[in-house]
């Protein structure tokens, strides 16, 4: 019997086992991506009076739609809003997640189990329901905190960021905490012998060891934040300060299903995908450069 070095026999078994995943990948990832590219490069042209069958034809227009999407002022306004919102969410959410993970891991904390469960609890609440709950808490007639209009044009970005921070901190905390627990305790002993305080150990030993996990959570958070859709869509009924194109993805939705311009929607989706790829890889490049620069 022919055997590979790994010990498993040469057979078609692994390919057979991977077939479901590959078929699903082709059907629900590769084909839709291809179709988006196809649509983004086309547009309907109306000939004659635009009446009757055959008067509307799909024609190839090259990069016209993409150029229009890049130059679209409404979309740019959306990018700026999401950039401000996203920076706020990323810094506060990941900052809190890191803080709570370090606190849970420290030996000086009581009520750790209760706090861990409580902070992770919002993960079990769908974004729609989280926005709905906070939306009611923001309503002037119901809010327990008087004196602030949470849904005014100047405050709505912060209010929306709060919903995302509330919903996302627990999961990221759990990722970081799990990574912290995996570090052998003996790593800290040497520092303790040298008289380092718990704070110094957290800053000098724990955080540097967490860097890969922090990078991972940051990249996932960047991808999620760029596609923000649920929170602004659900908060819209509470406030007239959130437009139907507040975020780029909301504009894709409007183009595709309200105005029926699939070609623009496809082009805008590609722009969003490109921005999120550039930002995630850009971030990875920056941190990798930084990490190499620091080590020796």
């Amino acid at each position: 019997m022919a055997r590979t070095r790994g010990g498993a026999p040469r057979s078609s078994a692994p390919y057979l086992f991977l077939t479901p995943a590959i078929v699903l990948f082709l059907l629900f990832l590769a084909v839709p991506i291809g179709y988006t590219v196809h649509l983004a490069l086309r547009r309907t042209r109306v000939s004659g009076l635009g009446l009757g069958k055959g008067s509307r034809r799909e024609v190839f227009v090259g990069l016209d739609n993409l150029r229009a999407a890049v130059a679209d002022g409404e979309l740019w306004a959306g990018w700026l809003r999401v950039l401000g919102y996203g920076a706020l969410v990323l810094v506060v959410m990941l900052g809190l997640a890191l803080l709570f993970a370090l606190l849970l891991d420290s030996a000086y904390v009581r009520l750790a189990r209760f706090s861990r469960i409580a902070i992770f609890l919002p993960y079990a609440v769908p974004g729609v329901v989280a926005s709905l709950l906070w939306g009611f808490l923001y309503l002037p007639s119901l809010t327990p905190i008087g004196g602030i209009d949470f849904l005014s044009a100047s405050a709505v970005t912060y209010s929306m960021a709060n919903v995302a921070v509330w919903g996302g901190t627990g999961f990221n905390m759990l990722v970081l905490y799990t990574n912290l627990r995996a570090i052998p305790r003996s790593y800290y002993e040497a520092a303790r012998m040298d008289g380092a305080s718990e704070l110094a150990i957290a800053l000098r030993v724990k955080i540097p060891m967490l860097v890969p996990a922090i990078i991972l959570t940051t990249v996932f958070s960047i991808i999620a934040t760029i596609q923000v859709f649920t929170e602004p869509t659900t908060l819209r009924p509470f406030s007239n300060t959130i437009s139907s194109t507040w975020s780029p993805l909301m504009k894709v939705y409007r183009d595709a299903f309200v105005t029926g311009d699939l070609y623009s929607a496809a082009a805008t989706s590609l722009v969003i995908a490109a921005v999120s790829l550039v930002l995630s890889f850009g971030f990875l490049r920056v941190v990798r450069g930084r990490a190499f620069g620091e080590s020796r």
Binding site: Y108, L111, S115, A118, I119, L121, V125, F136, L137, W166
Partner: peptide
């Protein structure tokens, strides 16, 4: 027991439980 670390953690827990209890 550090009062400050415990306090911060419990504050986080209260913030997370607030909408659910509401």
């Amino acid at each position: 027991v550090g009062a400050l670390p415990t306090g911060l953690l419990v504050l986080g827990a209260i913030y997370c439980l607030l909408p659910v209890s509401w």
